[in-house]
Structures are given as C-alpha cells and as structure tokens.
C-alpha cells in the first residue's frame, strides 16, 4: 500500500437542475491526510460520490495519480485504488464481521483462504478480532464504523475516503480512531480524505482542510488558517445581519 495523488478539477454536479456541487477543485498529494468540511447539505458527500464513481460529474474531472477516474463504475474506481466508507454505515448485515472484511479482501486476493487471512490481520489492527464471528448487524455503532474502515482497507486502496467515521463516537473512541488512522498513514503512506464534523479529529489528523458551502469551495488551508478564515466563520457562526 502506498498513497496516490487525488486531483479534482472544476467538479460540478447538477441533480435535475439542482446544483449540488459547483466548480470544486483541490488536490490531495500522495500520502497526505486532508479533510473536507462544511455545513450539512454543502455537497461533501456528493463530492465523495463523484470520486467513488457513484455519481458521474456534470462537469470536471477526478484523477488519481494523473489517471482520470471520474465516469468509471464504483467497482472500477475500487480497482483503481479508491476505498470508501459510507456516512450511513452499510455493513453486509447478515454476514459475520470476518465475512464482511473478507469480501473486501477478495478484491485483490481471489482465493478465499488468502482473503480470509488478510481480513483477520485487518480486524486485529482495528480491534475487532474478538468479534469476528458475530453477525455484522449485532455490532454497536462505533464497531460498525470500524467495520466500514476495515472493509474499505481490505481492498488495499491507495486513497481512503472516510465519510464521517467519527460521528457518534465518544471522545475516547475518536482518539483511538485518530491514532489508528495516523499510524496507518505513517506506516503505509496511504492518502486519506475525510469528511468530518468532529473538529477534534480534523485538527488532530488533517494537514490541510478544504471548506465547502452551498456546493462551492469557499476556503482551503491549514486547520489554523481555516479557523481564522472570515468566510468560514461566516458559514459556521452566521453573518452579522445589518438591521
């Protein structure tokens, strides 16, 4: 696993005339951890879905290491090296935790015993090993979030898209996840782009933050710069009304 460079250029998406994302462009260098933040409905998940191949952009391109991936089917995007989690977790409910991750691992390892072996190792790292024979639907929310990450990692991505994996976690659990992601990134050089509302995690992880509002990029910079950025403050705290 090594990281890949993600580049978004002029990315737009209209849903039957409703403009969800307009002309968004940014770059995540190989091996970096970047965050995508913004108020609810700003278009963050739509951007993720365009990267992951769920939506075809109305305009603009997504490329991974210089290769255009926008317009590809989600499974082809996965082939290209993009792993993603879902904001609303989507485990294979009736299957065991181990089977869930094994299915991810089968992507690069066609033989079931090899895939299962790789899945065991990932579950160990994410602290889910003792629950591996439980059905996925029996897991608690924090464990389901971890399962999402484990299943995505099992496909051996070069870019990992994390859609609010910290939401619903307790502060101590957030710290555990942050430590895991940081270590993963340091060890493997995996590129990570995260959508996150938990600022504690954004500050601890991301070297660079992109802010979107109403489908447009309004700012980007280091976490420190972003917290002082006027447009960002306006979006989060509300503009002062002139009476």
């Amino acid at each position: 696993m090594t990281g890949a460079r993600l580049e978004l250029a002029g990315l737009s998406k209209d849903f039957r005339g409703l403009r969800a994302v307009h002309d968004v462009g940014f770059t995540v260098p190989a091996g970096a951890i970047h965050a995508l933040i913004g108020p609810n409905g700003a278009g963050k998940t739509t951007i993720f879905n365009m990267i992951a191949g769920v939506h075809v952009p109305t305009a603009g391109t997504v490329s991974l290491d210089g290769r255009k991936i926008s317009g590809l089917r989600p499974d082809k995007v996965c082939d290209a090296g993009v792993g993603r989690t879902f904001q609303i977790v989507r485990p294979f409910r009736g299957l065991s935790v181990l089977e869930n991750v094994t299915i991810g691992a089968l992507h690069r390892r066609p033989h079931l015993p090899d895939a299962r072996h790789a899945a065991e190792a990932i579950l160990q790292r994410l602290g889910l090993a003792d629950r591996r024979h439980q059905p996925a639907e029996s897991l608690t929310l924090p464990d389901r979030k971890r399962l999402e990450v484990a299943r995505a990692l099992a496909t051996e991505p070069k870019l990992l898209l994390l859609d609010e994996v910290m939401a619903g976690l307790r502060p101590t659990e957030v710290d555990v996840m942050v430590a895991f992601l940081r270590e993963l990134n340091a060890q493997t050089g995996l590129t990570i782009l995260l959508i996150e509302h938990v600022m504690r995690a954004v500050m601890a992880l991301a070297a660079h933050v992109v802010v979107v509002s109403y489908g447009e990029k309004i700012a980007e910079g280091t976490p420190a710069e972003i917290t002082r950025h006027q447009a960002v403050l306006d979006v989060y705290l509300g503009e002062e009304e002139v009476a």
């Binding site: 992951a52 769920v54 989600p74 996965c78 409910r93 094994t102 299915i103 089968l106 496909t155």
Partner: peptide, 17 residues
C-alpha cells in the same frame, strides 16, 4: 461471496470492487 455481498447490499458491494 460476491453474491452474498450483493444480496446484503449491492451498493456497498460495488464500493469494495
């Protein structure tokens, strides 16, 4: 195993390739 994944959640299955 891919069939089982599709049975459980086709969109999630596609996301893992």
């Amino acid at each position: 195993r891919y069939w089982l994944a599709i049975r459980e959640d086709a969109e999630a299955a596609q996301a893992v390739g």
